[in-house]
């Protein structure tokens, strides 16, 4: 915890990161269970395919070998991919909620190796596999669905899938756009500790490429964070302004399209061109 009631400030920006612990085996557990369920569901299909190839059934009472089995094979493969994803998501959600009952997630500054630190790692590793799967699926934006399942408030019309985004303590409003390789950290490594605080992003914001958002940042509605810039911790970005810098201290008024057009008219090169 923070001593002396002093205001917490940081001298440098590091990153969010997770160690491999024995609990990481949860990834294998999720994979194993969901794959077994998929196999059980598909056993009638495999039986039928085996019958059409060899003329024998390994489960006699089941039917098999009709021509439409071959016709439905592509649909079966495609459906299995999504079924695998959904079963995986359900299993990890169950593990996640059990973990949350044992030790509810908290905001604050935690030492390396403390109980909160351990449970943070456990939560991260349970969420790891579904998010990996969602981003590897033919529909990469399905990761918004995963984030919502794990309790992050993500609004409508949000682009998320091109960034490193922590799976908890984040709130994103409607119509916000995050760009390529954005980092949204609600967990920050600082010396030997981890700082956890909620990030709030309002409606209709734009977060430009390669920018980093630190824990405790509040971005108000319709604010714009410029490319290659980061926010400080607990920083508030006011609405209807463009913010840039390291950290984002400079802010400008965005110009309306009419204003930009009049500028083009005044410009000599512009006059010649149009």
């Amino acid at each position: 915890m923070i001593k002396n009631n002093k205001k917490f400030e940081i001298e440098y920006v590091s990153s969010s990161g997770v160690y491999k612990t024995p609990f990481t085996l949860v990834v294998f557990f999720e994979f194993f269970i969901s794959f077994t369920i998929i196999l059980l569901i598909n056993l009638w299909y495999i039986n039928s395919l085996y019958y059409s190839v060899t003329g024998e059934r390994f489960i006699d009472s089941w039917s098999g070998g009709d021509w439409w089995y071959w016709l439905l094979l592509p649909l079966n493969i495609y459906g299995n991919i999504f079924l695998f994803f959904i079963i995986n998501l359900m299993i990890s959600k169950i593990i996640y909620s059990i973990l949350n009952v044992i030790h509810p997630p908290k905001e604050g500054l935690f030492d390396n190796g403390s109980k909160d630190w351990k449970f943070m790692h456990r939560r991260f590793w349970t969420v790891y596999f579904p998010i990996w799967l969602a981003r590897a699926l033919p529909l990469p934006w399905s990761d918004i669905f995963v984030y919502r399942v794990f309790g992050i408030k993500v609004g409508k019309n949000v682009v998320l899938y091109e960034g490193y985004i922590d799976p908890e303590f984040i709130e994103i409003g409607n119509d916000t756009m995050t760009s390529l390789h954005v980092c949204i950290f609600s967990h920050l490594i600082y010396h030997d500790r981890v700082f956890i605080k909620k990030v709030k992003i309002g409606k209709k914001c734009i977060i430009s490429a390669h920018s980093i958002i630190l824990p405790g940042t509040v971005i108000k509605d319709e604010a714009i964070l410029g490319a290659n810039s980061y926010t400080n911790i607990n920083q508030i970005l006011e609405s209807n302004l463009i913010h840039t810098g390291l950290p984002a201290i400079r802010s400008f008024n965005p110009k309306s399209i009419e204003e930009l057009k009049s500028k083009v008219k005044d410009n000599k090169i512009g006059k010649n061109q149009y």
Partner: peptide, 24 residues
């Protein structure tokens, strides 16, 4: 050593013990 997010280290860099390199 602690290296922040999105840093680039060019050839020949030598980082001594407990040094910190800020992000970007």
């Amino acid at each position: 050593v602690l290296i922040g997010a999105k840093c680039v280290l060019l050839p020949g860099t030598r980082i001594e013990k407990k040094a910190k390199l800020g992000a970007l």
